[in-house]
């Protein structure tokens, strides 16, 4: 039972991180119908920025809470800035290009950003300071669920709630939904579509940065390649839940997290990623639009 709970919570943690990244994918896809391959790289850059800021502040001798806040703030700001810039450079000129062009451009961007960090920093794994403190009240449960796992779950939940509120009730959220439904009509109603797309990239990138900071602090090391794997997994999760759908992305992420966690725990850790992709293939065979995605009937 204890082992089961341990795996359950580890799956929950994984799922939370996937969800934070998957939301960026699904929001961008919902609005411009593009698989933003560079999104995983944005997450990686968030983690790196946090690492750099945290290390500098540690050397300067700040206390832990200040470091956590500053690192988090810097990660969010810089990731958003990168997301915004990537969109402006690589996707905006391609709005009306053939469907595959932005995808290639995104893959190119992803390769570019990976190598940019590789060259400017290092190709080795860098140790990431444990920014999240160990809580005393968690002591008795530490063998099942760690403090950082708890924090990851809580932060993710908070972020989800805020995001839902933003999208449901704010005017920006309304504009975003309108743009996702019909870009031309939204434009006619006076919505600045380019601005909304930029905002979507910024929000998605900020979420990815939070995910990057949390998981890097939890695992304790990062390198330039972490974005690729996490990106593909998160994208899988988004597709699993039905891409374009926000609750779908969250649901898909948790399913993926638990699948991986239980499969590695009970079957074999070698095939962790195989399980993740197999469940994706299985679900798509039986439900081609994903779990919560609407199956659009095309009218002629």
């Amino acid at each position: 039972m204890e082992y089961f709970l341990e795996l359950f919570f580890s799956g929950l943690t994984r799922g939370s991180i996937y969800a934070l990244i998957a939301l960026g994918y699904t929001m961008v896809y919902g609005i411009i119908g593009l698989i933003n391959f560079a999104h995983g790289e944005i997450y990686m850059i968030g983690a790196f920025t946090a690492l750099i800021v945290a290390s500098v502040l540690t050397v300067l001798g700040f206390n832990q809470l200040a470091i956590l806040l500053c690192a988090g703030f810097a990660a969010v700001v810089y990731s958003s800035a990168y997301g915004y810039t990537v969109e402006k450079i690589a996707y905006k000129p391609l709005r009306n290009a053939p469907r595959l062009s932005p995808l290639i451009s995104a893959i190119g961007m992803s390769i570019f950003l990976q190598n940019y960090v590789l060259l400017a920093q290092t190709s080795d794994f860098m140790p990431f300071p444990a920014l999240i403190p160990e809580f005393e009240f968690m002591e008795p449960y530490a063998h099942i669920v760690g403090s950082s796992e708890l924090v990851i779950f809580l932060v993710t939940t908070l972020v989800m709630v805020l995001l839902t509120l933003l999208i449901k009730f704010s005017s920006i959220g309304k504009a975003m939904r309108a743009t996702a439904q019909d870009k031309k009509m939204a434009m006619l109603l006076g919505i600045d579509v380019n601005k909304i797309i930029s905002i979507t990239f910024v929000i998605g990138s900020a979420l990815a940065a939070i995910g990057g900071l949390l998981i890097a602090s939890h695992i304790g090391q990062i390198n330039f390649y972490i974005g690729f794997i996490a990106g593909i997994k998160a994208f899988t999760a988004a597709v699993l839940g039905g891409i374009g759908s926000i609750p779908g992305a969250v649901l898909g992420s948790f399913i993926l997290g638990w699948t991986e966690s239980f499969a590695t725990g009970y079957i074999s850790s070698d095939y962790e990623d195989v399980f993740a992709f197999s469940i994706l293939v299985l679900i798509l065979i039986f439900k081609p639009a994903g779990l919560l995605g609407r199956d659009k009937t095309k009218k002629v």
């Binding site: 995808l103 195989v274 994706l280 293939v281 639009a289 994903g290």
Partner: peptide, 25 residues
Amino acid sequence: FPVLRLRGDYLAIVTLGFGEIIRLV
């Protein structure tokens, strides 16, 4: 066979997954 029903980007991710499965195996 299994991916015939899928369209566009779903197809992309399933083929990506398939490629990764083969490599991981």
